[in-house]
Design a protein around this nucleic acid. Structure first.
Length: 778
DNA sequence: ATACTAAAATTTTTT
DNA sequence: ATTTTAGTAT
């Protein structure tokens, strides 16, 4: 079988057209579940294998690091099979050693040369080569050891500037808001003075001032924030023709996934690389291409600067004006391979309520399936209980469902707590994606700060983080003195500490502590070229006393922290194995840019809890979409803003289209917020926007799948479960034995019983509709 | 310099 | 309700 057949078999005609695309622009409009990742992967493999493109010339931008890894692996798989065929073998029949040999050959020749990753990771990689040629409009410069500030660090820095340097009233200027505004200004490519000219009111002047000081701080710390990571390459390309020319000729074939979530800086970057600054319509596209994949209906990152009109404008931007341009520069993938027809119909019907979109429908490949179930709960606890019951029931009815088959999706991270409590109680294995990232944990940030300080001693933020962690008796007043000395002659904190003048000015004990700290750091710095990252981390943890402090604490929390630090060492080892020339710098970038989703490995069998945003690109046989309440989802901040409301609807569309077989939509009439109850909560408008004939309301009398016969967990004794219980009643439970009712929670028919069992020290909470409970006569 | 206590803020989504 | 921040006592 030749390459052509191998790579095109099993694809539909539209997918084939996308895969076979060689030069010029192509927009692939890919609805949810239409095999877009597959098309992208095969296209890249096809470029390499069929058109013989040198892997050096490919640039592929993915939305997550995980997606990049996946696509790389899949390309490797395709190429490995192909190579085996060429040598007259069937890959799967080769011995393990031979398979590994082929894999390593493909890796050495092809995949290791690919530039594939998120915008941020690709830019940080490019900047390790180029940043020393860059200077900003103030003439400030950075070195390749720059630190990447995460969102939290950026927030803290802005807050410090606002209260320490500028004495601003926090009531009038919320640091969060200011950070957000500055990020927006930066993404529009505006300097502080540029912004001030446009917004010359008081607020505008203040924000411009914070922005200006913030950039100054970043430069002083040799640091970049997430926005700079994208902006600096763009500026560099704009100010230096030769640099742009180099990268333009290197990246002859550019592919971008999730193009609808591209922001203006990212767009500019792609435009520059693809066109070398020429007008795209004057471009000669021989041996060059720009290939983007996206779906405007799944654009959900407007708050981060994403603008889906960039996708809608693609053909104007990169296409030509000839009459048949549309058919030559666009492919539509509308065949959905993921979900049953009922779910697709609901998704199609919902999204049609949006004004600002291009009409498109997803065509089903499967039968209608079960109806979508909606359920109204009393509160978030009741909602979680309902899900627990359904989980058990579905598992019991369908042996092919494992825990991995289920996902619970919600609008806000805070909603996970109530769900988790019930899942723990119900003994259901689960994991939460998002929320607190691994790299955001205190102990991990501390360890990373040590590493950052080693490679980038000008990084004051990291220095301040570690100088007194663990406690060394170097306190606030000492640091203030040092900061003043640094300020006075424009040195960094490290330069002052490492210099001789600081020690002479400070008192004996403090000076001693500082001397010890400085020697430690210098000691580790000398190891940078000889030791590996994991070795250095181990050294830091031991020699700094960090590990000992945790060991002495002896609490569960400390034990967990030690465990996490060990995980960090493991992560560094793994990074070393996965990368050709592993460097500490690379590991640090990786840590700054890793998302929680990237950590998500194929692990033990668990159900998944995550936000709707995090679920993008994933699929599950059964999806529970919870908290469908007006004000929560759609979020209250979007209720008066039609544009924001449409984004919420797209988010709902994304959620619905994650489901392959079953979809459950729940809402609660009352929900806890800030500790007090907020009610009544109206059902989400999105529920009214679903086509009624594919929806089945679950009223709770039958907690079972209403389209089938009710289950009978009590084995014909269901009437027993219907009994009205009273406090003091005695009962028998299959597992816990004889007990007595002590409490009744909730009102019929959804009650929970507090039961004290003779065999159990504390009262158990039992749902009589869920477990068999036989009444006993006194 | 650090440990403890009271108040005040938090919740939209994230590379 | 929980978690972060500011203030005070040791």
């Amino acid at each position: 079988m030749d390459t052509e057949t191998l790579l095109l078999s099993g694809l539909n005609p539209a997918q084939c057209r996308a895969v076979q695309h060689f030069c010029g622009p192509l927009l692939v409009v890919a609805g949810a579940g239409s095999g877009k990742t597959r098309a992208l992967t095969y296209r890249l493999a096809y470029l390499l294998e069929h058109y013989r493109v040198d892997p050096e010339h490919l640039l592929a931008v993915t939305f997550t690091n995980k997606a990049a890894k996946e696509i790389k692996t899949r390309i490797e798989d395709l190429l490995v099979h192909r190579l085996a065929k060429q040598q007259g073998h069937e890959f799967t029949q080769l011995s393990g050693a031979e398979q590994n040999q082929l894999r390593s050959q493909v890796y050495q020749q092809v995949t290791r040369h690919l530039w594939m990753g998120t915008f941020h990771s690709l830019c940080s990689r490019l900047l390790r080569y180029e940043i020393e040629k860059y200077q900003d409009e103030q003439g400030r410069r950075w070195t390749k050891n720059f630190t990447i500030l995460d969102e939290g660090d950026a927030q803290t820095l802005i807050k410090e500037i606002m209260q320490n340097d500028m004495n601003l009233d926090e009531k009038r200027f919320e640091p969060r808001q200011v950070r957000y505004t500055i990020s927006r200004i930066k993404n529009q490519g505006k300097s502080p003075s540029h912004y001030e000219r446009e917004e010359s009111n008081y607020r505008g002047r203040v924000i411009a001032e914070v922005y200006s000081r913030y950039q100054q701080e970043l430069a002083k710390n040799n640091s970049l924030d997430f926005d700079d990571l994208l902006l600096v390459p763009v500026r560099l390309f704009q100010q230096n023709e030769q640099i742009l020319a180099y990268w333009h000729q290197k990246f002859r074939h550019i592919a971008v996934d999730e193009y609808q979530d591209t922001n203006h800086t990212q767009y500019e970057l792609i435009r520059l690389l693809a066109t070398n600054g020429h007008h795209p319509q004057d471009m000669a596209w021989e041996n060059r291409s720009i290939f983007v994949v996206g779906d405007a209906d799944q654009s959900i990152y407007r708050f981060r600067g994403a603008d889906f009109t960039i996708l809608l404008n693609f053909q104007n931007d990169f296409g030509d004006r000839l009459p048949d341009a549309d058919t030559r520069t666009m492919v539509k993938l509308e065949q959905n391979y993921r979900s049953v027809a009922n779910i697709l119909e609901a998704a199609n019907h919902l999204i049609r309520h949006n004004q600002e979109r291009i009409d498109k429908v997803l065509r089903p490949s499967h039968g209608s399936g079960e109806k979508i179930i909606t359920f109204t709960a009393n509160d978030e606890r009741d909602e979680a209980d309902y899900i627990l019951r359904q989980l058990r029931y579905l598992r019991q009815q369908n042996p092919h469902y494992s825990w991995q088959s289920f996902a619970i999706l919600y609008r806000t991270n805070a909603q996970s707590r109530a769900l988790e409590e019930v899942l723990v109680r119900g003994d259901i294995p689960y994991h939460v994606v998002g929320g607190l990232r691994f790299y955001d944990r205190k102990e991990i940030k501390d360890a990373l700060a040590y590493l950052r300080l080693l490679v980038n001693p000008t990084d004051n933020i990291s220095l301040l983080r570690v100088i007194n962690t663990p406690k060394r008796g170097i306190g606030k007043s000492t640091l203030e003195q040092i900061a003043q000395m640094a300020e006075a002659d424009g040195r960094s904190l490290w330069q002052v500490l490492a210099g001789t003048d600081a020690l002479t000015q400070l008192k004996g004990k403090t000076a001693q502590s500082i001397q010890t700290f400085v020697s430690l750091i210098e000691h580790w710095q000398r190891q940078l070229d000889t030791k590996t990252a994991p070795e250095i981390i181990q050294g830091i943890l031991t020699e700094s006393g960090y590990r000992r402090e945790l060991e002495l604490a002896g609490t569960d929390e400390a034990a967990e922290r030690l465990q996490n630090l060990q995980e960090l060492v493991n992560a560094a080892i793994q990074y070393g194995e996965e990368n050709d020339d592993p460097s500490l710098l690379g590991f640090l970038s990786n840590a700054s840019l890793a998302s929680d989703l990237d950590q998500l490995e194929e692990g033990p069998d668990k159900i998944t809890l995550m936000t709707l945003h995090a679920s993008k690109g994933l699929e599950f046989p059964v999806v529970f979409l919870v908290g469908l309440e007006q004000g929560l989802f759609p979020n209250f901040r979007s209720l008066n803003d039609p544009v924001a409301l449409e984004e919420e609807r797209r988010l709902c569309y994304v959620g619905i289209t994650r489901a392959k077989e079953r979809l459950f939509l729940t809402h609660a009439t009352s929900r806890r917020l800030y500790g007090n109850r907020r009610e009544p909560a109206m059902a989400s408008m999105f529920l009214q926007e679903l086509p009624p004939h594919v929806v089945q309301v679950d009223r709770g009398q039958t907690w079972v799948n209403p389209t089938k016969t009710p289950p009978n967990p009590a084995g014909g004794q269901r009437s027993a479960a219907r009994q009205r219980w009273q406090v003091g009643d005695r009962c028998f439970h299959r597992k816990f034995g004889v007990g007595q009712i002590t409490h009744i929670f909730g009102k019929e028919p959804r009650v929970h019983l507090g039961i004290r069992f003779e065999s159990y020290p504390t009262p158990k909470m039992i749902d009589p509709r869920l477990v068999e409970l036989t009444p006993l006569e006194d």
